[in-house]
Design a binder for these strands. Structure first.
Lengths: 224, 224
DNA sequence: GAGTCAACGATTTTCGAAAATCCGTTCTAT
DNA sequence: ATAGAACGGATTTTCGAAAATCGTTGACTC
């Protein structure tokens, strides 16, 4: 029998991508229960790879597992937004500081390249086609990854990556709520400039503020 | 058919515990390939729960997954020891600082209780029966968890917990190499005293030093 | 009428076998 | 002799169904 491989090298990998995206675009909403029957229908596969995908998603905080009662989409909350923000400020701030101290010319080149790719796409707004928005998200993630990529600590990097994805669901809210109010592009450019100028403390501070602003823009959403 | 439940509420949970312990005590050594046939024999169950256990272990850094080539025990290295240590110093240091600032009387009581339970067991040494050593490990983990438990950040707490387990394999080496040379009990008591005296910065600094010493004691092991 | 408990339905969890994949070896053609 | 295709064994990955579990419904008792 022939299997179709969309992206990953195993069905479990494909299921991970599919479910993660379905959660991202709101097909499954925070708190929703995730029944295996539905997920199998979505992914066109048996229960085993779906189960493995959910195990990974749970490890990264996207879903919750209740023994013998199945998986559900992790809820969004103001408390978690603040928590994610604070932890990112700690981890990514330090990672950026180290990266600025240790980065070589190669790192500078990666950073400039990543920024350029991101800056070429117009400011994110609600009315953009979703494909373009996905594209911007990917480039945005690549830029932030480039910033910290020279920190020299694989474990810290992995933490940053996971926290970045965990903040992803909140970031999407931020975009649709707060279209063009902030000068996000300017913040990013400033981050790059501080990093290239080897101002480690300044860059770390700017990154923490950058995340603080994103969080602040969302506080209102939860008080409704 | 009747299933035996040793600890967890699902077989996958039991498998997680069994494999984690087997790695801990050295049944499977760093770099070893983990074949499903062996693990099924070890755990007395089918492939499905074993696979789920490995997915969790991989998320926590105990094992590695190579698509279509299976799982293996993550290797130990000097580089990873330094990396884990630095990241723990960052995360747990901050968590402890916050905990000292925010902790209430309840937290103080938990901390004192956890310290007492740990201090009642004689200094860890190589020649202790392994059951007692496991017991000490558990109480040691509980003490460190109590230290940071009032930090108010569930995500940071989860990070600390995972980093603590990840350091566990190295800590075991430390115990068998460096039996009574350090005054570990003294370091722990001092940590508690600083925390109870509400010296947030001092406690955080002491914790970072505590981890630094553990790492230093192990450096030699890898240069052989 | 309130409370207990057994049986049912929905769902998760696990099983055992089939399918797919990888790696090393052999075979073939140049 | 060597590069490359192709077979075979070992192993992972996936499937489809069976078993176990949870929450609920509804009958029965006090």
């Amino acid at each position: 029998m022939e299997q179709k491989r969309t992206s990953g090298r195993t069905l479990a990998g494909d299921a991970y991508d599919a479910i993660r995206q379905a959660i991202g675009v709101g097909t499954f909403k925070p708190g929703d229960r995730l029944r295996f029957a539905d997920l199998q229908a979505l992914c066109n596969m048996s229960v085993t790879p779906v189960r493995e995908a959910l195990a990974r998603l749970t490890a990264e905080g996207f879903t919750l597992l209740d023994d013998h009662r199945g998986y559900s989409v992790a809820p969004l909350s103001l408390a978690e937004l603040r928590d994610v923000t604070a932890t990112r400020q700690l981890c990514e701030g330090e990672a950026l500081r180290l990266s600025v101290l240790k980065g070589d010319a190669d790192w500078e080149a990666r950073l400039i390249a990543a920024h350029h790719l991101m800056a070429r796409i117009p400011q994110v707004r609600d009315d953009l086609p979703s494909a373009m928005r996905e594209d911007w998200e990917a480039r945005h993630a690549a830029f932030h990854a480039a910033l910290v990529s020279a920190c020299g600590s694989p474990i810290l990097l992995e933490l940053c990556e996971k926290l970045f994805s965990r903040a992803d669901r909140y970031r999407r809210l931020s975009v649709s709520l707060n279209g063009g109010a902030r000068d996000v592009a300017g913040e990013h450019r400033r981050l790059m400039e501080l990093a290239l100028a080897r101002d480690a403390e300044g860059a770390a501070r700017a990154l923490r503020e950058h995340y603080g602003q994103t969080a602040a823009a969302l506080e209102g959403f939860f008080s409704v």
